[in-house]
């Protein structure tokens, strides 16, 4: 060891440069491994907070009814109503700000563990829009890359060298240090509380309805997202999961239809999947007080919407 150490101190040509770089990389690898392992341990020990909910959605829940989507799923579908009326356990795996990549990754993880009876997928305007941000947001799935091979092909889309970066044990927990620390504290349980994944919105909107002209609102479509949507439907069908695709209420007077919504409906139709559209439901369009903002309903709205959806589900399938 001392001989090696002495050799490292001698400055000579290329060979010693390579030797010194190799020694540094070894030290870096050891530090990365130890630090990453510590972070991983604390990440998965969290008992509250966003990361815990992600972990629970992917590794924990065994609910019969699962609700997928972004903020409009997470903040609008109250599992308690589904449990009460459908007499089945329900969990809301929706996640604020997450793109379609996230929903499909969670689905794959869930289906690997068990088969839910019903899946409700909330689809929003612009869901297939091309956006770099959608790929960046997959960072919340990085901690699961190592333990979930079924997610890897989705996560690797994040960037061309993602697979290389994920050789680091620390990298999956990038930017999560403080969240992990806070998530392991008792006080965090009182922050951002949820009801089986559902987050209540309590503001009341008080403004007139505005018009959005979707005919003028053109944007590029991300084919990856559309393909994952098709795969989502296909995987549910193959697993014999009853799938409902839902467009929840908007406080918008729409001229035309959003391109993503059109595509979503078409593909659902091709696959004989029930597509339930509340975008033009008069109860919601005539009452701003059921909304927190123009694209999210509040607690009162959620009660009405969840029950209306359940009514539709029961009516459509007569199986409850």
């Amino acid at each position: 060891m001392i001989e090696v150490y002495k050799k490292l101190s001698i400055k000579k040509g290329y060979q010693y440069l390579l030797l010194k770089i190799a020694a540094f990389l070894l030290l870096a690898f050891i530090t990365d491994f130890i630090s990453g392992s510590i972070l991983r341990s604390f990440y998965f020990k969290q008992t509250s907070g966003w990361e815990y909910r992600t972990k629970y959605s992917i590794d924990g829940t065994r609910a019969d009814v699962l609700i997928f989507g972004a903020s409009r799923a997470q903040q609008q579908y109250n599992p308690l109503y589904f449990e009460e009326r459908l007499h089945q356990s329900c969990y809301n795996v929706g996640r604020d700000g997450e793109p379609f990549f996230y929903y499909y990754a969670v689905l794959k993880a869930v289906l690997k563990r068990y088969t839910p009876k019903i899946i409700i997928l909330d689809i929003e305007n612009g869901v297939f829009k091309e956006s770099q941000d959608s790929y960046d947001r997959m960072s919340i799935l990085l901690p699961f890359y190592k333990s979930h091979p079924e997610m890897r092909s989705i996560i690797e889309l994040r960037s061309p060298f993602e697979k290389l970066k994920l050789q680091s044990q620390i990298y999956p927990f990038n930017s999560m240090l403080f969240k992990i620390a806070i998530g392991n504290t008792e006080m965090n349980k009182k922050r951002n509380q949820d009801i089986k994944g559902y987050v209540e919105l309590r503001r009341v909107l008080d403004e007139p309805i505005r018009t959005v002209d979707f005919l003028k609102n053109k944007y590029a479509i991300d084919s990856n997202k559309v393909n994952f949507y098709r795969s989502f439907i296909k995987d549910c069908k193959q697993a014999n999961v009853k799938l409902y695709i839902v467009c929840s209420p908007y406080f918008i007077h729409a001229v035309g239809t959003d391109i993503s919504m059109t595509i979503a409906k078409e593909i659902a139709g091709e696959n004989n999947i029930d597509f339930v559209d509340f975008a033009k439901d008069e109860i919601f369009l005539n009452n701003s007080k059921l909304f927190d903002d123009t694209v999210h309903i509040n607690v009162a709205g959620s009660k009405i919407f969840s029950n209306k959806l359940i009514d539709t589900m029961i009516l459509k399938n007569k199986i409850f």
């Binding site: 540094f24 030290l27 870096a28 990365d32 972070l39 680091s168 620390i170 927990f173």
Partner: peptide
């Protein structure tokens, strides 16, 4: 060597933990 390279490892680890990628 250990202190010097330990410091560089620390910088590298902080980049991996706190860098914006």
């Amino acid at each position: 060597w250990l202190i010097r390279n330990g410091y560089y490892c620390l910088l590298l680890m902080i980049i991996l933990i706190a860098g914006v990628f």
